[in-house]
């Protein structure tokens, strides 16, 4: 095993464990951890099984197999970023709805306290 292989295995295994630990401590929600876990697992397997990496790299026409690892890594990062954009959009929508509901609720409460002044001290 050469040095780059050992480094690649250690890095991806360490990363995988770190993500698992974050999920275990509830600092990272399961739904946001899936892509991270899956991505680091794929890279770990490809680092361990050098012949799989060679076969896959060859299959897509990549001459230098380790660059296939970069490709996989970059693709996962892209996926994760898209996932975040979607999550932010969803939060944005929810935030807007809550602000609107809150404004409507407040005006309803004020109208109520004006019509029954004795309920408010």
């Amino acid at each position: 095993m050469n040095r780059v292989t050992i480094f690649s295995i250690c890095a991806s295994a360490g990363f995988l464990l770190y993500i698992l630990e974050m999920v275990r401590r509830r600092k990272l929600r399961e739904e946001y951890s899936i892509l991270w876990l899956f991505g680091s697992a794929v890279i770990l397997v490809l680092s361990l099984k050098k012949d799989w990496l060679d076969t896959l790299a060859h299959a897509v026409g990549i001459v230098y197999p380790p660059s296939f690892l970069f490709l996989v890594g970059i693709l996962f990062i892209l996926l994760i970023l898209i996932h975040f954009s979607i999550a932010i959009s969803k939060l944005h929508q929810m935030n807007k709805k809550m602000a609107q509901e809150l404004a409507l609720l407040k005006s309803g409460n004020e109208a109520e306290s004006r019509s029954n002044p004795e309920t408010e001290k």
Binding site: K96, A99, Q100, L102, A103, L104, K106, S107
Partner: peptide, 20 residues
């Protein structure tokens, strides 16, 4: 008066009026 707790921008504000 409806007071939005944060700035939603023109569309979100007008929509609050429609909801009312």
């Amino acid at each position: 008066v409806l007071d939005l707790p944060c700035n939603l921008g023109i569309g979100g504000a007008v929509q609050t009026g429609f909801l009312y």
